[in-house]
């Protein structure tokens, strides 16, 4: 009978310890992370800017035209343009889980700051 209770004790102690580790260990055991798409998005926008293709679309508010210039492979993407006052044009992604790349310009031929947001999902 004593041995039976010892076994029960071991089982319960093991359950308690493993349960504790499962909760705490979650913060230390991470699943493989997907690619950081915000970096890919930034590089895509920078590439367009380096080729002189980005700023004209931005200052003209042509988010669709700019979006069509971007190729993110199998990922969906959309562009939102925000001016100095915080007024934004362009669609928001229809998902709760999207990467966002930010690119800021001071203007094209004149001072006209914009924030370019590239959403990728």
């Amino acid at each position: 009978m004593r041995g039976f209770w010892y076994i029960i004790e071991c089982v319960l102690a093991g359950m308690v310890i493993f349960g504790f580790l499962a909760v705490i260990g979650r913060t230390y055991i991470s699943l493989p992370q997907p690619d950081d798409l915000s970096v890919m998005g930034y590089e895509s926008l920078k590439s367009l800017d380096d080729r002189g293709l980005l700023r004209n679309y931005v200052v003209n508010g042509d988010y669709n035209g700019l979006n069509s210039m971007i190729d993110m492979g199998t990922y969906n993407h959309s562009i939102k343009l925000c001016n100095y006052s915080g007024t934004c044009s362009g669609p928001s992604p229809n998902t709760s889980n999207a990467w966002a790349a930010v690119y800021i310009i001071a203007g094209n031929q004149s001072y006209e700051p914009y924030e370019v947001r590239l959403f990728i999902w």
């Binding site: 915000s38 930034y42 990467w99 800021i104």
Partner: peptide, 16 residues
Amino acid sequence: SPTYDLIYISNNLGKE
């Protein structure tokens, strides 16, 4: 999710 884009943003601002 953690992102590591600060260096790219700083490059962007360094130019702008």
